[in-house]
Amino acid sequence: MKARLTPLNFVSAALMVLLVYPLVFSKESGVSFTMMILLILVCSVSDILFRTFLRDLKRIWIVEMLFVIFAVAVLLILGKASVLN
């Protein structure tokens, strides 16, 4: 099986680092453990789904980058909305 790196692989790896780093090097945790696990799980499952439905690596990269950009935009909008309330 040929290993294919995709944007969601990088996002999942970054989330794992953000999950483990405060646990190892800090007494206080800056993020919720369950929320980070949930985000990692969502990234992994969506990566598997995109790989299943899209066979071309170039299309996978384009669709996953759009997915990541859309998810970040939604999180930023929701974060701004929660600050205003």
Rank of each mutant, 00 (worst) to 15 (best):
S32D: 13
S26W: 11
S26E: 15
N9I: 04
L15N: 00
L18G: 13
F10W: 14
L15G: 00
S26A: 14
V20L: 09
G30C: 05
L23A: 15
M16Y: 09
M16C: 09
V20I: 13
L18R: 09
A14R: 02
K27V: 15
S12T: 09
N9L: 13
Y21R: 01
F10V: 11
Y21N: 02
K27H: 12
S26L: 10
L18N: 13
S32Q: 05
F33L: 10
T34I: 14
G30E: 14
K27E: 11
F33Q: 08
T34L: 08
L19I: 04
P22D: 01
M36A: 11
F10M: 09
S32T: 07
V11L: 06
S32P: 07
F10R: 04
F33H: 09
S32K: 03
I37C: 11
V31R: 13
V24H: 03
M36K: 10
V11I: 06
T34F: 07
Y21A: 04
N9G: 12
V11T: 03
S29W: 04
P22C: 00
P22E: 01
L8W: 03
P22L: 00
L23W: 15
F33D: 12
K27Q: 13
K27Y: 11
L18C: 11
L23I: 07
F25M: 06
M16D: 02
G30L: 12
S29T: 04
S26K: 07
I37K: 09
V20M: 06
I37V: 12
V31F: 14
E28V: 12
L8S: 04
F10D: 07
M36Q: 08
V17S: 01
F33V: 09
L23H: 15
S26C: 07
S29D: 10
G30R: 07
V24A: 07
F33R: 04
L15D: 00
V31P: 05
V17D: 02
F10C: 11
P22W: 00
F25G: 05
K27T: 14
L19T: 04
V24N: 02
S26Q: 11
Y21V: 01
V31W: 11
V24I: 07
V20Y: 03
M36D: 05
L18W: 12
A14G: 06
L15I: 00
V20T: 04
E28I: 14
